[in-house]
Design a protein around this nucleic acid. Sequence first.
DNA 1: ACTGACCGACAACCAGCGGACCCA
DNA 2: TGGGTCAAGTTCTTGTCGGTCAG
Length: 453
Amino acid sequence: MTDASVRLTFEGGTVRVDAPRDLLETLPDVEYDPRTETGRTPGFRYATLRAALAEHDVEVEDRVLALSDLPALRSAYELREYQHEALDAWRDAGQRGVLELPTGSGKTVIALKAIEALSIPTLIVVPTIDLLDQWERELGTEFDVDLGRLGGGEQRVEPITVSTYDSAYLRADELGDRFELVIFDEVHHLGGEGFRDIGRLLAAPARLGLTATFERPDGAHEVVEELVGPVVYRLSAEDLAGDHLAAFDIKRIEVALTPEERERYEEFQGTFTDYLAQSGIQMRSGSDYREIVKRSGNDPAAREALLAKQRAREVMMNAEGKVEELAGILDRHRGDRVIVFTAYTDLVYRLSERFLIPAITHEVPKVQARRRILEKFRRGEYSRIVSSHVLDEGVDVPDANVAVILGGSGSEREFKQRLGRVLRPKAEGERAILYEIIAEETAEERVAERRRG
DNA sequence: ACTGACCGACAACCAGCGGACCCA
DNA sequence: TGGGTCAAGTTCTTGTCGGTCAG
């Protein structure tokens, strides 16, 4: 017992545990691997494994992490009080956990301070190339070290590296031993079926997640919690409004469908409800909906019902009355900076033509063109833009003070992200406004309720 | 170097009120 | 007559992203 020895090494996203069989069996989450005749556990269990071994009176030869040298980092940045609290909460939780803070509250800065405080090799994982660039810029300004970059056509690893989720996913098994701290920006993405493997394969014991909305409707935040840790600090937009973020009002406006729209809506919606009645499905949650989706693979009636539901959704999301209402809003806010959000790209182009507003969708040819439009918006050459979902996340959108949602999903996340676009601190007394325009007597009233308007 | 086409991944997707059938 | 089960083997569409590869 006393002189047993244990050797830990990293192999393709797992920690290999060379130890006597009887000791292996006492270790949590360590499985016996008959091929190598050793114990084995996923990379993310490394920290708990070390803790468990510390309880035993054994000599541990730990060769898991292969870290490069990193000079002590220093940044001139001063954290605000709540940012300080957030960082402390994370450290108190054993350098594991998630910070849930609204868009514009300076999550990046907290992370930079965490990197500075620990000065250990760090991997930062982000969902988009845009964020890749932003992090690279911030890190470059703050720290005087070479930065690695994985994604956007480059694959360069340095002690401090920024990666996309996609690239990290492709290389996690091989990179898992190179970093002691991993930061997941927009950490809710880590709940995705494939992306969760990133968290699983990395051995980094220190883990920080950043997001504005931790909970996922599919429940996968529990996976994230296991891989990164629980939420250790949380503030909402309301908490910071009027102080570090702009004060804001949310105005809900209901508009009527035209008689033609009403007729089409009722017909499509009717097809859907008829199917529900006929199949006996109780529509209580998203899983009931998924049940219909599942059936639609083999059952033509289910498929027809789903298509009808989608057509009904299109009718209400694109209702003509919303366009008229928008005309009034644009008129009232002549001097303001306005972002208009829709659910469908078709409507984006219709609005763009009718109101002569630049459009941004995923189809906008080339990132360059999109960037040019945003740049002109930033400089004030444009005071309005129309977009679908493109600007929801991961794009550095210049500040606006009026947002108009013509069509959106029931997603709380989408709503917060859109709201976040108008919440940067404003001049004294100025308030941001978010308009939700909703088709009355349609399912959209419930949809808007779900996202908590 | 840039571009477009392709692929796979991810996310959202949520009625309003009484039927049909098989088997023990 | 009464009670239980109703459709399984992989699943709708739209919007958006990153990675890859050919030209």
